[in-house]
């Protein structure tokens, strides 16, 4: 599932896969406004890749690899912060 990443000097990075959710500015009755799509319940979770530390290894994770399982995705402010 998750592929191991070789640790080098560069920090591994990931990011959105496919549709990023950012849409082109939409023309609405002559007025141009920026449309930013938000996460909505009942809609697909945007796919992404991300490097991870898991079980003593550095691995690459992609959300879509977890199709068929329940996933809890948690964001938090930072390592070594208090809560």
């Amino acid at each position: 599932m998750a592929k191991e990443i070789k640790a080098g000097c560069a920090r591994p990075t990931g990011g959105p896969v496919g549709e990023t959710g950012k849409e082109e500015p939409a023309k609405d009755q002559g007025v141009i406004r920026e449309v930013r799509s938000m996460i909505r319940v009942g809609k697909k979770a945007p796919d992404f890749t991300a490097p991870a530390y898991h079980g003593g290894k550095f691995v690459g994770v992609q959300l879509s690899e977890y199709l068929g399982k329940w996933v809890v995705l948690c964001f938090y402010p930072g390592d070594f912060t208090f809560v």
């Binding site: 009942g42 964001f75 938090y76």
Partner: peptide, 14 residues
Amino acid sequence: ETRGRFIIDPDGIV
């Protein structure tokens, strides 16, 4: 990041 928590089902739906 703020403290976001998402429950995603086996079909990839939030």
